[in-house]
Design a protein around this nucleic acid. Structure first.
Lengths: 337, 337
DNA sequence: CTCAAAACTGCAATCGATTGCACAAATAAA
DNA sequence: TTTATTTGTGCAATCGATTGCAGTTTTGAG
């Protein structure tokens, strides 16, 4: 049915080996035969059986990607970046989402492992505290790159932003704008990035001579609903906050809506900074000041790193943690003029 | 290195065939041996070489997905739905983006074809008017499902929404709210969905006894910038529009911003309806009335259809075009009370 | 107790491409 | 012209799992 290298070989009175080599540009084959073989292959409508090749070479040219949620703007941007680079290097990208569910993450990575992906790029789920499913990869020397939600326990390339610094800068900015009681809506402290953002916040507060007040800090899962609840809680305080640093834009949005409903004005009464620069942040009223993470670039970088590792498996790697630049985008939600 | 079925066979004094069958739950193998073999396989840390199996069976358990842009909310939602269903059925999902570039779409589909995906789910790029790369699949009887941007020329399952009806309803709604001069910002008429939306608009206008005015219709690529330009153009008219039906939310947003800058009030002076229910539409001021497309469900449905086809390749298929329900979400941008 | 049917299991070919090694031919050097 | 290189090709094994067919054992009916 399908043309194979044997068919081509037979037709041309070469051996399959020669055909294979010619098709793969092996320098041992003369220019003339190479051309002839390629031409004939074309005419015969030959298409390589990648499965057979993969099977033989143990290389799938496939990169596995695991993210918590595919349809979050940040993650889909990262994926987009990964895909772009991978495509150019002849790699295929296989995507799965963990839904922040450890069980699923575990299964997914096992599947990817069984499918013999050449490398894995992953941002961990919220509840992942056991890493044996990733050890699988590092143990077998299968390239692994973490981004965003990374983990110290495993040696690998990591692509992050300086969350501590971001938290610090965002909070500092609020204080510079005149805030005296800056609250914080943060994520789970089990996750490094949220811990870091919060620590940055704390540093800025202290540095400015203010006290850390427990009642001004709320930790949750940072969903839309969590944000609303956090806002309710914060504004039940006797002494109200006059600014909030939110660990993501989603909760910042919840706060805006909650405050609007309660006739508290942003930015006049409360200043606000979010995190991630979601598409809506720019266009909501007031536009939300936020930290821009270069998702697309992070994806590209992750892909570059992993492809480099895949192509240089023999040479020893020393793993690097790459901190990508961020930007504090100042919009109306945090400025008073 | 890796344990194979032969290793297991040797250890247990069975043949590889028996091991293979036991592992695949072939009923010809007795319960006792099956259990024994499975247990031993487990103990020996056996993991099947999927590549070998795929090679042999010519089945990859992989579904290829091609979308214009991975990081568009609608598409990432669809992907999310596909992934969810595929995962449950033991399929892996490979994703690529065409960037609305025909060349890339062409290459991608060829790659996917070479990689022997078991099926392909695709939403076409803006400029795709040649379909030979898709014929590749239908010719070889490889299941194919279109969604969103579909095409008549190829027989396959298709998942769409009733764009005509949506356009009609949206426009009708504007007229019911008192609009007398409804403009339309539409996409390329080469693309069926945009053509349909526009036709729906036209029907509503005529049905209400108004005239179609060329000057009230602008067609472009529906980017943010296009929207702004379209708004400029529309409001250069001597007789201004008092409502606009935009073929996507992005341009609706552009219009809002443009009008705000020019002190024209939405909805007081101009009523607005968009399309797609982007995440920002709900939270921008004023919130944008829009048509909600069930992206996640469309993805799930697409995956179900293609998996069904894959698993029933022998039985003859009659292709269906599934119209998913939409919803006109009425928000402030199109209501005057 | 005999024999056919049913239930298990093994043999061996097969999928298509890759690659180490051997060998032949062509070229260069002596 | 002979010998040593270089260059180009072919042989044949191999990757690991699957499966049609055949053979053996067990079961059950008569």
């Amino acid at each position: 049915m399908e043309t194979t290298i044997h068919d081509i070989a037979k037709k041309l009175n070469f051996s399959a080996s020669t055909v294979s080599r010619a098709l793969n540009n092996n320098p041992k084959i003369s220019e003339a035969t190479r051309k002839l073989i390629k031409k004939t292959a074309d005419e015969m409508g030959y298409r390589p059986n990648i499965l057979a090749a993969s099977f033989r070479t143990k290389r799938t040219n496939t990169i596995g990607v695991v993210v918590p949620h595919i349809n979050r703007h940040f993650f889909s941007s990262v994926i987009s970046g990964i895909e772009e680079v991978a495509y150019k290097s002849g790699f295929t990208v296989t995507i799965s989402q963990s839904n922040d569910n450890f069980e699923k993450e575990n299964k997914i990575t096992h599947t990817l492992f069984s499918n013999r992906v050449d490398g894995l790029i992953i941002s961990l789920g919220m509840n992942t505290i056991d890493f044996s499913h990733l050890k699988l990869f590092s143990d077998k020397n299968i390239p692994l790159v973490f981004f965003d939600r990374v983990v110290d326990e495993i040696k690998a390339h990591k692509i992050v932003v300086d969350d501590f610094d971001c938290g610090y800068l965002a909070t500092k900015h609020l204080i510079e704008q005149g805030a005296k009681r800056v609250a914080h809506i943060g994520g789970s402290l089990n996750i490094k990035i949220y811990k870091n953002r919060q620590d940055g916040y704390i540093k800025a507060i202290k540095e400015s001579g203010f006290e850390i007040e427990e009642s001004l800090i709320v930790n949750n899962s940072l969903t839309r609903e969590d944000g609303t609840n956090a806002a309710k809680k914060l504004f039940r305080n006797k002494k109200l906050p006059d600014a909030i640093f939110c660990a993501n834009d989603t909760t910042a949005l919840s706060v805006i809506i909650y405050l609007r409903e309660n006739n508290i004005k942003v930015p006049e009464n409360v200043l606000l900074v979010g995190f991630s620069n979601e598409p809506f942040s720019e266009v909501v009223t007031p536009p939300i000041s936020t930290i821009k993470q270069p998702g697309f670039l992070m994806g590209k970088k992750a892909a570059e790193l992993i492809i480099h590792q895949i192509n240089n498996k023999n040479t020893k790697q020393n793993f690097e943690t790459i901190t990508m630049p961020t930007e504090l985008i100042i919009r109306n939600s945090s400025t008073r003029n």
